[in-house]
Design a protein around this nucleic acid. Structure first.
Length: 883
RNA sequence: GGGCGGUUAGCUCAGCUGGUUCAGAGCACCUGCCUUACAAGCAGGGGGUCACUGGUUCGAAUCCAGUACCGCCCACCA
């Protein structure tokens, strides 16, 4: 880099340095004697593409990893992808559908071929995109949840839990997604208030022979298409209105099937009509009532959400079409009493947005009781901390009410459940077909391999990703608690921090903790940092349909990855939603440019050993050194509390305000003059420290400049440069410089108010104890000559106060006495009130008696300062009045 | 319905165990500057009854109670 352009161009440097880092394997980690710092990536969907949520999450991860690396730890960030069974399978199904192929038609094996093809084609794109963002993942360790070793781990854990008795097969009411044709877990159902109707239907009382009498009861339902599956009408036993129904039978409208009236406390008397139609096959609560009262279960809706033959009428119609049609039929038959508008919560599938159909089916479950208890303890004991803490409450609530986990999915893309059915319907659970055959033969010696039929279902994706922090290092371990952890697992586990969104706190975070406790006897990570959801600046979620989701790669191309990273971090305090605005990225780009140009200035300095260091430069060097240390301590504190945006803002201001606006202006030689070697060296040292400080956030520009500020050898990198350490400094240095800064601000204020051109040198008179060594700094920074005086007699100009020092800018003939007087009187008025307040406090006996000494001491100082200011102001007013 | 969190400047947020001259930051805004690193810049400036009402305290943005509104999670009354 010979000449620096006036503007920083990210495009030209980012790819170059990423390749350099890759070439030198700087991201790669192997166990060694250093302290490990480990993060496992929240694996994105293998066929997904990068969105703003990923940008936020992975930027945070990368900042933590790069920081740890510079702190001298052996940092390892394990990347990888998730097979995402439902999401991926539905994409493949859609692709095949477009080709006119259905999944059932081609069968499991053929379908999986297509799925793998799809994975090969689209898989891992997102990892390439993370490289563009600058993520320093250990790519040699890239994992995929469905790669053979990790799939084996999944199967082994299934067998392990089965043999432990925690996995069982049961017929349960599950959330059926009629579009994806699979059961989904409770957590994958989103309840949305949905407008519908409340249909009031008459059910006539039977005369006992299946014929209607003229008496009837009224039920209210939102799902009239399910009446054919009714098994009973239920009323509350305490409901006097319905005592007459006791023991009666009623006829289902249209089909005239006879069903009993039963009593159950579940029915709310003041809701609807107080009569509930019980449809065990198509409603969770009804199913439970059915169990209590031994009611038959009649399923009339098939897997696709269509009515089947058992419905007798409307056979083959979609449930929503059937609803419309049956209403008409009921009306014609005289069973429809009235229709009300009604809004009720309806469950929708998270993936397909189809209305969930409660459906009875055989599913595999994992018992949660013990696992949830362990996982709750991990967090309650503080072994794993949540940031922000508020999520502990949510977590506790869930853990205390955890239901058994439905782990089977009626899909093909995923790990197939290792249960093998014998011809008689019994089954064995083993990790391999061979072992299954052996086990089956133990039951029945004549069984051949071809007699066994493996369960058709696959496992929930989370049943593989919950092993992630373990399986990425040692896939042998999960499922084999007795197995000695391999070298990697022993070294890297437990990982340190996990950065993820709160939406998967139960899906993933909780379950990783369970798996960690179960298989490792140890929590999988020490801290979980929950990011917010990225929204647009109007607060709407990013979505494809709204078109408000920018493509991160386009942004990176336009502004550079460093700018994008800063833009995301600037507005992201933990746990708060992020309101994304491109302006923030522009701010990031502006900061890159600022850094760039501050280096251009220093690089352009001519250095001459013949030049003596100016007093102003000497003071500035001393000050910035102290200021740097002070700020580094603050930054470290922010990092330790995961206040990443605060850490960034602190560095941002150190760089922009302190370094550029104050320090560089103070040491800058006059135009055309060279700078002395001491100042030059110090400045480069400071600049390097700043680059190192900001490197975790802005990896590219910092590498680019770091490589230029001194001769570097091939293989050297800022990535492994040590984070600047706090050096001892004198508080006095900071205080004195701060006083000089306030003085400069005062003079600049006068200049601005009076519209005095910057080039016009001013004369500043200071009365009071101003540190002499700061005079050159003031003179340099506001183009003035400073004169220490004992009074301002006869001088014309504008006065101002800096703390308790009176200052005066001489301005012959340019002063409006009346204005000055007005200003001074206002100031005096303020000070008098201030003094009054302070004295009120000090004269309050209880305050003096109760407040800590330091607080009282401070009040006394306020009083003294105020008094001297008042004195100065009064004098000033007097002299103005007489002039 | 149950639980949790929030409400501070136009916007996004900080303000840790009540007490520094405490009401802050960044952005946005206004004024003046193309000052030889940077106009993606420099210098200066305005702007808030800390949601509301009470309470505790010598002292409250900060603690407590209630109210209003917002958000999230859980449950789901057919």
């Amino acid at each position: 880099m010979k000449e620096l352009a006036a503007k920083y161009s990210a495009a030209q440097v980012e790819d170059k340095w990423y390749q350099y880092w890759l070439d030198h394997k700087f991201f790669h980690s192997e166990p060694n004697e250093k302290e490990p710092y480990t993060i496992v990536i929240p694996p994105p969907n293998v066929t997904g593409i990068l969105h703003m949520g990923h940008v936020l999450n992975n930027t945070l991860n990368d900042v933590l990893i790069r920081k740890a690396r510079m702190d001298g730890k052996n940092a390892c960030w394990v990347p990888g992808t998730d097979h995402a069974s439902i999401a991926t399978e539905s994409k493949v199904v859609a692709k095949l559908k477009a080709m006119g192929i259905s999944k059932e038609e081609i069968g499991r094996e053929e379908f999986l071929k297509h799925a793998w093809e799809w994975k090969e084609e689209h898989g891992g794109i997102i990892l390439q995109q993370l490289k563009k963002l600058g993520c320093s993942c250990d790519w040699d360790r890239t994992r995929f949840t469905m790669e053979p070793a990790l799939s084996e781990a999944v199967i082994n854990t299934f067998v392990y839990f089965y043999k432990k008795g925690w996995i069982y097969k049961g017929v349960r009411m599950v959330n059926w997604d009629p579009e994806a044709l699979t059961a989904v877990s409770d957590d994958e159902v989103i309840h949305k208030d949905t407008k519908s109707h409340f249909y009031h239907l008459k059910y006539y009382i039977s005369d006992g022979n299946g014929n209607p009498t003229d008496k009837y009861l009224v039920i209210a339902t939102t799902r009239p298409e399910t009446i054919m599956a009714d098994a009973a009408i239920c009323v509350n036993p305490k409901d006097e209105r319905h005592f007459w129904l006791k023991g009666k039978k009623v006829l289902i409208p249209l089909i005239k099937r006879e069903i009993p009236v039963i009593e159950d406390e579940y029915v709310e008397m003041d809701f609807g009509t107080g009569c509930l139609k019980v449809t065990p096959a198509h409603d969770v609560h009804d199913y439970e009532i059915g169990l209590r009262h031994n009611l038959p279960v009649l399923e009339i809706i098939d897997d696709h959400g269509k009515l089947n033959e058992k419905a007798q009428i409307l056979v083959g119609e979609d449930r929503f079409v059937a609803r419309k049609k049956i209403v008409k039929m009921l009306e014609e038959a005289g069973n429809l009493l009235k229709v009300e508008d009604y809004t009720s919560p309806v469950g929708y599938s998270e993936r397909t947005d189809a209305v969930i159909e409660p459906k009875l089916s055989a599913q595999w479950f994992l018992k949660m009781e013990t696992l949830a208890g362990m996982a709750l303890e991990t967090v309650e004991s503080g072994r794993t901390q949540f940031i922000p803490e508020k999520y502990v409450n949510t977590y506790r609530h869930w853990m205390e009410n955890a239901r058994d986990w439905c782990i089977s999915r009626q899909l093909w893309w995923g790990q197939r459940i290792p249960a093998y059915y014998l011809p008689d319907g019994s089954y064995v659970v083993e990790a391999t077909p061979e072992a299954a055959l052996k086990a089956a033969q133990a039951i029945n010696p004549s069984i051949k391999a071809s007699d066994l039929r493996q369960d058709e279902d696959v496992l929930d994706t989370w049943f593989s990703s919950w092993l992630w922090p373990i399986s990425v290092f040692d896939p042998e371990k999960p499922g084999h608690p007795e197995h000695q952890p391999n070298k990697d697992l022993a070294y890297y586990y437990p990982t340190n921090d996990l950065v993820t969104g709160p939406d998967i706190i139960f899906f993933w975070v909780a379950r990783m903790i369970m798996a960690g406790e179960e298989f490792m006897g140890k929590e999988p990570f020490s801290n979980v940092y929950f990011t917010g959801i990225v929204r647009d600046k109007m607060g709407r979620k990013m979505s494809k349909t709204l078109g408000n989701s920018p493509d991160p790669l386009v942004l990176i191309e336009k502004y550079g990855a460093d700018a994008v990273r800063i833009g995301m971090l600037l507005c992201s305090s933990a746990g708060n939603d992020i309101f994304y605005d491109e302006a923030q990225i522009q701010q990031g780009a502006a900061f890159c440019n600022k850094i760039w140009n501050s280096y251009r200035l220093v690089k352009g300095f001519q250095v001459s050993a013949d030049v003596q260091q100016s007093p102003a430069a000497a003071k500035a060097v001393e000050w910035f050194g102290a200021r740097l240390s002070e700020t580094v301590a603050l930054v470290e504190d922010h990092y330790s509390k995961f206040r990443i945006s605060d850490a960034l803002m602190t560095i941002y201001r150190l760089f922009w305000d302190d370094y550029c606006s104050w320090y560089l202006e103070a040491i800058k030689p006059a135009f055309g003059s060279p700078v002395d070697p001491a100042t030059h060296q110090a400045t480069l040292g400071f600049f390097e420290a700043l680059l190192k400080l900001i490197h975790p956030v802005m990896p590219f520009i910092t590498e680019e400049l770091w490589q230029d500020i001194a001769p570097r050898k091939e293989g050297e990198t800022i990535m492994y440069a040590a984070t600047p350490k706090v050096q001892a400094y004198k508080q006095e240095v900071l205080d004195n410089f701060a006083l000089a800064m306030e003085t400069v601000n005062g003079v600049r204020g006068v200049r601005s108010q009076r519209n005095l051109p910057p080039k016009e040198q001013l004369n500043l008179k200071i009365k009071g104890a101003f540190p002499a060594e700061m005079i050159p700094v003031v003179e340099k920074l506001c183009n003035c000559s400073v004169e220490m005086v004992s009074g301002f007699e006869g001088a014309q100009g504008v006065g101002f106060l800096v703390r308790t020092l009176e200052m005066f800018v001489a301005l012959d003939g340019k002063v409006n006495v009346a204005e000055e007087l007005e200003k001074a009187r206002k100031e005096l008025q303020y000070q008098l009130e201030f003094l009054e307040n302070v004295r009120k406090k000090l004269s309050n006996e209880r305050f003096v008696a109760n407040a800590p000494a330091a607080v009282i001491e401070n009040e006394r100082k306020k009083e003294a300062d105020s008094l001297s200011k008042i004195e100065i102001l009064q004098e000033k007013i007097k002299s103005l009045e007489t002039s």
